Amino acid sequence: MTKKFALPLLSALPALLVSCQDTVDTSRYQRLGFNSYQQCAAYYRVQISQGLKNPCVRSGASSSGGGGSGGRFYGPYYTNSGSTTRYVGYDAGGNPASTGLSYDSKSGRYGSFKAGGTSRGGFTGSGRSSSRGGFGG
């Protein structure tokens, strides 16, 4: 005699895992708009050279990336606090990345930080590190 078991939760596992990922709370961040990817990339060239990944994303697009004409592009999320500016680029899906670039204008140093921090209920805890950073031109 053979018994069959249905595993409905197994098929829902990928969606469940995605819903539990750290998401970046962008409520304290701003971002600038540009008419083209090239304008955006040129504006953030210093941050890109310091390691900022995927700094520009097409408005309404499901992925970041270069080239393309038409539409609006947004630069990385950024926030200023004292001498520190933090930048958060985008992941392959066009969502804020889980890590970012920081700049400290007093020391002139760049660093990285964990930008994740769940904004969904339950799993709290800031993923922000004590790494310092500021607006680099």
Rank of each mutant, 00 (worst) to 15 (best):
P8H: 02
L10M: 08
L10D: 06
A12C: 03
Q21Y: 05
D22Q: 14
D22R: 06
V24W: 03
S27N: 15
S27F: 03
Y29N: 10
Q30S: 14
Q30Y: 09
R31I: 02
F34L: 01
F34Q: 11
F34N: 06
F34R: 09
N35K: 06
Y37P: 05
Q38G: 09
Q38D: 13
Q39M: 09
C40H: 00
A41T: 12
A41G: 01
Y44N: 07
R45A: 15
R45S: 15
S49T: 08
Q50E: 15
L52K: 07
L52T: 09
L52W: 03
S59R: 13
S59F: 14
G60F: 00
G60C: 03
G60A: 09
A61D: 07
A61G: 06
S62Q: 04
S64D: 09
G65W: 03
G65A: 10
G65H: 07
G65L: 02
G66E: 10
G68Y: 00
G70P: 03
G71H: 09
P76Y: 06
Y78L: 15
T79E: 00
T79V: 12
G82S: 09
G89K: 12
G89C: 10
Y90V: 11
Y90A: 01
Y90I: 11
N95E: 05
P96C: 07
A97N: 11
S98D: 05
S98R: 07
G100P: 09
L101Y: 02
Y103E: 00
Y103F: 14
Y103M: 00
D104Y: 04
S105A: 13
S105C: 02
S105H: 04
K106L: 02
S107C: 04
S107V: 04
Y110H: 14
Y110D: 02
G111W: 01
G111I: 01
S112F: 03
S112W: 01
K114E: 04
A115I: 08
T118S: 11
R120K: 07
R120W: 05
S126P: 13
R128N: 09
R128E: 06
S130L: 12
S130V: 10
S131L: 06
R132C: 01
G134V: 00
G134H: 02
G136V: 02
